[in-house]
Amino acid sequence: MSNIDIRRSHSRPLKEARAAIERVAEHIAEKFDVEYGWNGNTMEFSRGGVDGHIAVSPKDIHVTATLGFLLGAIKGPIEREIQRYLDEEFG
């Protein structure tokens, strides 16, 4: 198993940060074929070989994911793609 753990601070109101994470999740879902949904201020996502969440607080975003054996082999590209989408939304 391989893990992704990304933290990013932000200064947006919580509602705007959630909307930005929704856009990030749409990109990730399209690119990696994951399903996602909200549980409070945490977006949970999964598919075969990956489970994770994106927690949104008033001050930061915390992305965690556990990748199975096959996806663990491409952890770097997955992590870079998540970072890229976060950069687009949060600069």
Rank of each mutant, 00 (worst) to 15 (best):
A29I: 08
I28R: 01
V24C: 13
N39G: 06
S11I: 06
P13A: 07
G91V: 04
D51T: 13
N3T: 13
I4Q: 05
P58Q: 10
T42S: 11
W38E: 03
G49Q: 03
A19M: 09
K15W: 06
E35N: 13
F45H: 05
M43R: 01
K75I: 08
R47I: 02
K75M: 06
F32M: 08
R8L: 15
E30H: 11
Y36M: 03
V24L: 11
I4C: 07
I74W: 05
S2I: 02
R23V: 12
D60S: 14
K59F: 12
I78M: 14
G68H: 06
I78K: 03
I82M: 08
F69Q: 04
F90N: 00
E26C: 03
I28G: 00
P77I: 10
E22S: 12
G91C: 04
I4Y: 08
S9W: 05
M1E: 07
S9G: 05
F32T: 01
E30W: 10
F90P: 00
R84V: 03
G72E: 08
D5Q: 11
V34Y: 05
I6A: 08
G48A: 12
T66E: 14
T42N: 06
S11W: 03
I6R: 02
R8V: 09
H53D: 15
G48E: 11
E44L: 14
E79M: 05
G72K: 02
P58H: 09
I82H: 02
A29G: 12
E30A: 11
Q83M: 10
I21E: 01
A55M: 08
N39D: 14
I61M: 06
R84P: 00
G76V: 13
I61Y: 10
H10Q: 09
E22W: 03
E89M: 13
T66D: 11
I78Q: 02
E35A: 15
E16R: 11
L71Q: 04
D87Q: 09
F32N: 00
E22K: 10
E35P: 00
T66S: 12
P13K: 08
I6C: 04
I21Q: 01
R84T: 13
A20C: 07
L70H: 02
